[in-house]
């Protein structure tokens, strides 16, 4: 059985249908990249999976448990789903270590020593072993995003959601964040990624989901989607990323 299953998901903002009947599933250890033009509903989809938005119809099932539209114990469900946002969202009043420890200690009530050790290992792996006591304002955008990823990982989530995590970064910092994600994928983490970095998407994805207008238009292997998309809309979308105009 799939780790994450989305079936017939519908979501409206007022009268605007943002998600119209979206269904797909993600296997354990699979990396799925969601592509699509702005406003196609891909970010909303991630927010629904993490319970930040309620849904009007359909189900989200994680590990055999329905997690959509839970109100009481949503914060318990969220511990199984890690998420990293586009805007660097570290808590500015806490240093890096406290940022990472907050969730495991307060939400999961884990032993401090154990979590600190885990946090230090992760910081080491993302190349920030010496930033433990730094405050977010002392870090660059790329460093902040790497810490945000570590913060989510230390909750030991079953699936990680990445919502355009490099979109607000200076170009020279994109790479360091993507490298971290790539390593994570190689470790077998289940990941759901929304991105505009096409090369990265192609390299990391096991599967591409292309969305437009709140629907899944195409689901394909990355090799196939990028060389020969089945849908007309997919073709149009990809053309935006190749520069074919030349000066006369």
């Amino acid at each position: 059985m799939a780790l994450l299953e989305i079936s017939h998901l519908k979501k409206n903002f007022d009268k605007n249908a943002v998600l119209k009947d979206v269904s797909f599933s993600v296997e354990k250890g699979e990396v799925v990249v969601i592509l699509g033009p702005s406003g196609c509903g891909k970010s909303t989809l991630l927010r629904c999976i993490n319970g930040l938005e309620s849904v009007q119809d359909g189900k989200i099932i994680l590990d055999g448990e329905v997690i959509s539209n839970r109100t009481k114990d949503m914060h318990l469900i969220r511990q199984k789903v890690g998420m990293v946002f586009q805007s660097y969202d570290l808590f500015p009043h806490m240093n890096v270590l406290d940022n990472i420890l907050l969730g495991p200690m307060k939400a999961q009530h884990r032993d401090k020593k154990e979590v600190v050790k885990e946090a230090e290992e992760w910081l080491e792996r993302v190349g920030l072993p010496d930033k433990k006591l730094a405050y977010p304002r002392q870090l660059s955008g790329g460093q902040k995003q790497r810490v945000a990823i570590v913060r989510a990982l230390c909750m030991n989530p079953e699936v990680m959601l990445f919502d355009e995590v490099t979109a607000a970064l200076d170009p020279e910092m994109v790479r360091e964040v993507l490298d971290v994600m790539m390593n994570l994928a190689n470790d077998g983490m289940t990941m759901l990624i929304v991105t505009h970095q096409m090369d990265f998407a192609r390299a990391i994805a096991d599967r591409i989901i292309f969305m437009d207008g709140g629907q899944i238009v195409e689901e394909a292997e990355p090799g196939q989607f990028f060389t020969n998309p089945k849908s007309e809309r997919g073709k149009k979308f990809l053309e935006n990323f190749t520069f074919k105009v030349y000066r006369k």
Binding site: R78, M83, F91, Q108
Partner: peptide, 28 residues
């Protein structure tokens, strides 16, 4: 909002988000 949401994302309850994320920042 994103601060509150990232508090929720690491599994904090509503009360904990207020206690550890919102209040300390609002106080200063």
């Amino acid at each position: 909002r994103v601060q509150i949401e990232s508090g929720q994302c690491i599994g904090l309850s509503g009360l904990q988000v207020m206690r550890y994320v919102v209040l300390p920042q609002a106080v200063s």
